[in-house]
Protein backbone atom coordinates (compact mmCIF):
# COMPACT_ATOMS: atom_id res chain seq x y z
CA UNK A 1 0.00 0.00 0.00
CA UNK A 2 1.34 3.37 -0.99
CA UNK A 3 0.76 6.55 1.00
CA UNK A 4 -0.50 9.35 -1.22
CA UNK A 5 0.16 13.07 -1.44
CA UNK A 6 -3.07 14.77 -2.47
CA UNK A 7 -2.86 18.41 -3.51
CA UNK A 8 -6.02 20.44 -3.17
CA UNK A 9 -5.87 23.51 -5.43
CA UNK A 10 -8.91 25.08 -3.83
CA UNK A 11 -7.25 25.82 -0.47
CA UNK A 12 -4.94 28.70 0.44
CA UNK A 13 -2.17 26.52 1.90
CA UNK A 14 0.88 26.64 -0.43
CA UNK A 15 1.62 23.45 -2.38
CA UNK A 16 5.05 22.94 -0.74
CA UNK A 17 3.40 23.12 2.69
CA UNK A 18 0.72 20.61 1.62
CA UNK A 19 3.43 18.20 0.44
CA UNK A 20 5.50 18.59 3.64
CA UNK A 21 2.44 18.29 5.89
CA UNK A 22 1.30 15.06 4.24
CA UNK A 23 4.75 13.45 4.35
CA UNK A 24 4.97 14.38 8.06
CA UNK A 25 1.54 12.84 8.59
CA UNK A 26 2.57 9.66 6.75
CA UNK A 27 5.62 9.37 9.03
CA UNK A 28 3.50 10.04 12.13
CA UNK A 29 0.91 7.42 11.13
CA UNK A 30 3.59 4.82 10.35
CA UNK A 31 2.71 4.68 6.63
CA UNK A 32 6.31 5.81 6.08
CA UNK A 33 8.99 4.47 8.38
CA UNK A 34 12.66 5.24 9.04
CA UNK A 35 14.82 4.21 6.10
CA UNK A 36 12.02 4.47 3.49
CA UNK A 37 13.12 6.13 0.28
CA UNK A 38 10.96 9.02 -0.90
CA UNK A 39 10.47 9.51 -4.66
CA UNK A 40 12.91 11.80 -6.50
CA UNK A 41 11.93 15.49 -6.71
CA UNK A 42 11.33 15.15 -10.47
CA UNK A 43 8.90 12.23 -10.03
CA UNK A 44 6.70 14.00 -7.48
CA UNK A 45 6.81 17.24 -9.50
CA UNK A 46 5.83 15.33 -12.64
CA UNK A 47 3.06 13.42 -10.86
CA UNK A 48 1.59 16.61 -9.42
CA UNK A 49 2.38 18.86 -12.39
CA UNK A 50 4.18 21.38 -10.18
CA UNK A 51 7.54 23.13 -10.37
CA UNK A 52 10.66 21.20 -9.31
CA UNK A 53 11.48 24.00 -6.82
CA UNK A 54 8.13 23.49 -5.06
CA UNK A 55 8.94 19.86 -4.24
CA UNK A 56 12.59 20.67 -3.44
CA UNK A 57 11.37 23.32 -0.98
CA UNK A 58 9.13 20.76 0.79
CA UNK A 59 12.04 18.32 1.02
CA UNK A 60 14.39 21.02 2.37
CA UNK A 61 11.82 21.94 5.00
CA UNK A 62 11.44 18.29 6.08
CA UNK A 63 15.23 17.93 6.10
CA UNK A 64 15.57 20.99 8.37
CA UNK A 65 12.93 19.53 10.69
CA UNK A 66 14.83 16.23 10.83
CA UNK A 67 12.06 14.12 9.27
CA UNK A 68 14.13 13.21 6.22
CA UNK A 69 17.76 13.30 5.16
CA UNK A 70 18.67 14.51 1.69
CA UNK A 71 21.57 12.35 0.57
CA UNK A 72 23.56 13.39 -2.47
CA UNK A 73 23.49 10.08 -4.32
CA UNK A 74 20.93 7.94 -2.53
CA UNK A 75 18.02 10.37 -2.60
CA UNK A 76 15.70 11.41 0.22
CA UNK A 77 15.29 9.00 3.10
CA UNK A 78 12.98 9.03 6.13
CA UNK A 79 15.03 9.58 9.30
CA UNK A 80 14.66 7.82 12.63
CA UNK A 81 13.96 10.23 15.56
CA UNK A 82 17.11 11.94 16.93
CA UNK A 83 18.66 10.20 19.97
CA UNK A 84 19.30 13.41 21.83
CA UNK A 85 17.27 16.62 21.46
CA UNK A 86 19.11 19.72 20.32
CA UNK A 87 18.70 22.59 22.85
CA UNK A 88 17.78 25.33 20.34
CA UNK A 89 15.42 23.04 18.44
CA UNK A 90 13.78 21.98 21.72
CA UNK A 91 13.16 25.60 22.72
CA UNK A 92 11.61 26.40 19.34
CA UNK A 93 9.39 23.30 19.50
CA UNK A 94 8.19 24.10 23.04
CA UNK A 95 7.22 27.54 21.82
CA UNK A 96 5.30 26.02 18.89
CA UNK A 97 3.75 23.55 21.32
CA UNK A 98 2.49 26.37 23.57
CA UNK A 99 0.97 28.20 20.62
CA UNK A 100 -0.68 25.00 19.37
CA UNK A 101 -2.08 24.24 22.84
CA UNK A 102 -3.50 27.76 23.06
CA UNK A 103 -5.06 27.37 19.59
CA UNK A 104 -6.63 24.05 20.57
CA UNK A 105 -8.06 25.48 23.78
CA UNK A 106 -9.31 28.47 21.83
CA UNK A 107 -11.00 26.12 19.37
CA UNK A 108 -12.89 24.59 22.27
CA UNK A 109 -10.98 21.33 22.69
CA UNK A 110 -11.00 20.36 26.37
CA UNK A 111 -7.80 19.79 28.35
CA UNK A 112 -8.92 16.23 29.11
CA UNK A 113 -9.36 15.48 25.43
CA UNK A 114 -5.93 16.90 24.55
CA UNK A 115 -4.36 14.83 27.34
CA UNK A 116 -6.13 11.65 26.17
CA UNK A 117 -5.00 12.18 22.59
CA UNK A 118 -1.39 12.92 23.56
CA UNK A 119 -1.24 9.83 25.78
CA UNK A 120 -2.60 7.68 22.97
CA UNK A 121 -0.22 8.99 20.30
CA UNK A 122 3.02 9.06 22.29
CA UNK A 123 4.76 5.67 22.52
CA UNK A 124 5.28 6.18 26.31
CA UNK A 125 1.65 7.12 26.69
CA UNK A 126 0.61 3.92 24.92
CA UNK A 127 2.72 1.88 27.34
CA UNK A 128 1.18 3.70 30.33
CA UNK A 129 -2.29 2.96 29.03
CA UNK A 130 -1.41 -0.69 28.55
CA UNK A 131 -0.01 -0.93 32.11
CA UNK A 132 -3.16 0.70 33.51
CA UNK A 133 -5.42 -1.73 31.62
CA UNK A 134 -3.47 -4.70 33.03
CA UNK A 135 -3.77 -3.31 36.57
Amino acid sequence: MTPLIVIDWSVDEPVYAQIARQIRAAIASGALSAGDLLPPVRTIASDLGVNLNTVARAYRLLDAEGFVAIEEREGVRVQAPARRADRAATEALWEEHSVLLARMRQAGISAAEIRRRVERELPEGARMEGARRKA
Binding site: I7, A31, L38
Partner: peptide, 13 residues
Protein backbone atom coordinates in the same frame (compact mmCIF):
# COMPACT_ATOMS: atom_id res chain seq x y z
CA UNK B 1 -13.69 23.76 -15.55
CA UNK B 2 -11.07 22.76 -12.97
CA UNK B 3 -10.27 19.69 -10.95
CA UNK B 4 -9.97 19.52 -7.21
CA UNK B 5 -6.77 17.60 -6.76
CA UNK B 6 -3.50 16.18 -8.01
CA UNK B 7 -1.99 13.01 -6.60
CA UNK B 8 1.58 11.77 -6.13
CA UNK B 9 3.03 8.87 -4.20
CA UNK B 10 4.91 9.47 -0.97
CA UNK B 11 7.07 6.39 -1.48
CA UNK B 12 8.98 5.32 -4.60
CA UNK B 13 6.67 3.06 -6.68
Amino acid sequence: PTTGAAVAFARAV
